[in-house]
Write a protein that binds this DNA or RNA. Structure first.
Length: 362
DNA sequence: AACACGGGGCA
DNA sequence: TGCCCAGTGTT
């Protein structure tokens, strides 16, 4: 790593950065106060997720679960429903588990100790630093993608930010420049700068409050940074799914396992289709019979849905079917159209449901 | 260290 | 299309 700034420069940098933040920061729901629980919830939601996406979820979540006790005592299905569509669902399961721990072991008070807080489920180095600094003004680094981008430019750091080791490098660098008298504003300012000015593709250096401290700008290399190696692309899978209904208009849905992809969410029964000789329809019928003892005749294809994850792609062929009989307790649950609203579905299966409803209209 | 884990927005 | 986003847990 290149030479760090002098002590005088550090003070100057802190003042320019914090001064800018105090003047230009966005008004956001989680900035209304510094309630540690609110800060915590917002930070978990913001992991790998944009501010604009998070806002409505945050407002709804805080209305339903306003404090640690409310979330600790809440029904898990209701909590999942409040997270429906946000993605990375293990975040909310871990959050509820951690809040239950706070509720029971810390009398409902989020511990103001980085070591204790950092041991909680779903709290990694970033979330630990963010919550400790923003809520309790404890000078801990909070190194996220923004901070690595901003600091890689400021300090002209050319290490690959995709490598786990590099995050530690930035952690060390931040410890040397963090404003110990106002770590809350300092950390938030760095992230705000990354979001508003020091953006990935075309940073607005002419508007940047810390341009004079930026080594990359000095050398005209801001667009070369940060260095990040490419990630490999997704694998493509072929699936077949069935919207199963009975003569009374009920739906049969399935709860996904408690681990792995989309854990604990609800879905329409489906399977991966791998056969080269059988049709998808036949393969799905066989699966439904063997897995759920379902007796039915699938109708024609309702349509095809593509859904892209960060690591894979689902190509889902959708069928509709009228059920004659289904074995009891075999994994499928019968729900009315009205009850469907209470279950949390991943977006891929919301698309399936929508496609089915569109097909019924015609 | 590498990979699993969602979903959406933007050039 | 590919990249990026206020990352964490598992192997």
């Amino acid at each position: 790593m290149k030479n760090l700034l002098s002590e005088l420069e550090i003070k100057d940098f802190q003042q320019d950065l914090i001064g800018w933040f105090q003047k230009e920061q966005r008004i956001l729901p989680w900035r209304e106060n510094s309630d540690p629980y609110r800060v915590w919830v917002s930070e978990v939601m913001l992991q790998q997720t944009r501010v604009d996406t998070v806002i409505p979820y945050f407002l709804n979540f805080m209305e339903k679960f306003p404090d640690p006790a409310a979330l600790a005592n809440a029904d898990e299905e209701q909590v999942m429903k409040a997270w429906e569509g946000l993605g990375y669902y293990s975040r909310v399961r871990n959050l509820q588990a951690a809040v239950r721990e706070v509720h029971e072991s810390y009398d409902g008070i989020v511990p103001a100790d980085p070591d204790k807080f950092g041991e909680l489920k779903g709290v990694g180095p970033y979330t630990k630093g963010a919550v400790m600094s923003i809520a309790y003004n404890i000078p801990e680094p909070a190194v996220d993608g923004n901070v690595m981008r901003v600091m890689s430019r400021i300090l002209l750091i050319e290490e690959d930010i995709a490598k786990p080791k590099t995050r530690k490098l930035f952690d060390t660098a931040i410890r040397e420049v963090i404003a110990k008298d106002n770590p809350s504003d300092f950390n938030q300012a760095l992230m705000e700068l990354g979001a508003l000015i020091c953006t990935p593709s075309s940073p607005s250096c002419l508007l940047c409050p810390v341009r004079d401290h930026c080594q990359a700008f000095e050398e005209g290399r801001q667009k070369d940074l940060p260095i990040k190696s490419k990630k490999k692309k997704q694998k493509s899978l072929l699936l077949a799914a069935a919207v199963l209904t009975d003569s009374e208009g009920n739906f049969w849905i399935h709860k996904r396992p408690s681990e792995g992809l989309l854990a604990n969410l609800w879905e329409f029964p489906n399977c991966e289709t791998v056969s080269e000789t059988m049709t998808q329809k036949a393969e799905l019928e066989l699966f439904l019979h063997k897995e759920y003892g379902a007796l039915m005749e699938l109708e024609t294809i309702e349509g095809i849905i593509q859904h892209v994850f960060s690591h894979l792609i689902w190509n889902i062929t959708l069928f509709a079917g009228k059920v004659e009989r289904i074995e009891n307790g075999a994994g499928l649950v019968k729900v009315t159209e009205e009850e469907m609203k209470a279950y949390a579905f991943p977006v891929s299966h919301q698309k399936i449901y929508q496609l089915y409803l569109d097909g019924q209209k015609k």
